[in-house]
Computed example of a mutant assay.
Amino acid sequence: MKSLLYIVTACLVMGLAVWAYHQNYQTQASLREVRELRTEIADLRERAGVLRAEWAYLNRPERLADLADMNFDRLGLLPLRPDHFGHIDQISYPEPVLGPVMDPVEVMLRDEADQ
């Protein structure tokens, strides 16, 4: 009976060792993946910064004005002036579409209800 207990205990210890070994490798793989993702995120942030700088460089007002002047005969672009913009109160919004009232509700004032 004692030897059976020793064998079961030894098997249990070996099983736990295999499980711990497996968990260790899963943890290392997860940490490696996190490291790779962080590197990729840093690269993408750097690339986004470069793209923002390029966009700002390409959208310089003097460059756009020169392009508009060079291509005026094809595009007909005019320089923007403050009077080209409207005010918010000049926007016409569509009226909301209301469906028919099927079950009307009668509403009374509080004073009428107390009487």
Rank of each mutant, 00 (worst) to 15 (best):
64 L>K: 00
80 L>S: 07
85 F>C: 06
10 A>K: 10
47 R>E: 12
81 R>Y: 05
54 E>N: 10
77 L>R: 02
13 V>T: 15
9 T>Q: 14
72 F>R: 14
97 V>Q: 13
77 L>F: 04
21 Y>L: 02
14 M>A: 15
39 T>K: 14
56 A>I: 01
49 G>R: 09
31 L>F: 01
48 A>M: 12
42 A>D: 06
59 N>P: 05
95 E>H: 06
18 V>Q: 09
40 E>T: 15
73 D>E: 11
4 L>S: 11
21 Y>I: 00
73 D>H: 10
49 G>L: 10
4 L>H: 05
111 D>V: 13
113 A>T: 11
22 H>T: 00
97 V>I: 14
101 V>H: 04
31 L>R: 04
83 D>L: 01
48 A>F: 14
2 K>L: 09
99 G>E: 14
78 L>F: 07
85 F>V: 05
112 E>A: 12
54 E>Q: 14
38 R>P: 02
22 H>D: 03
72 F>A: 08
99 G>D: 12
111 D>L: 09
71 N>H: 10
95 E>Q: 12
107 V>D: 05
71 N>E: 05
96 P>Y: 05
48 A>E: 15
22 H>L: 00
87 H>A: 15
110 R>L: 11
86 G>P: 00
25 Y>N: 10
13 V>K: 09
64 L>P: 01
75 L>W: 13
3 S>A: 15
40 E>Q: 15
58 L>K: 11
55 W>E: 04
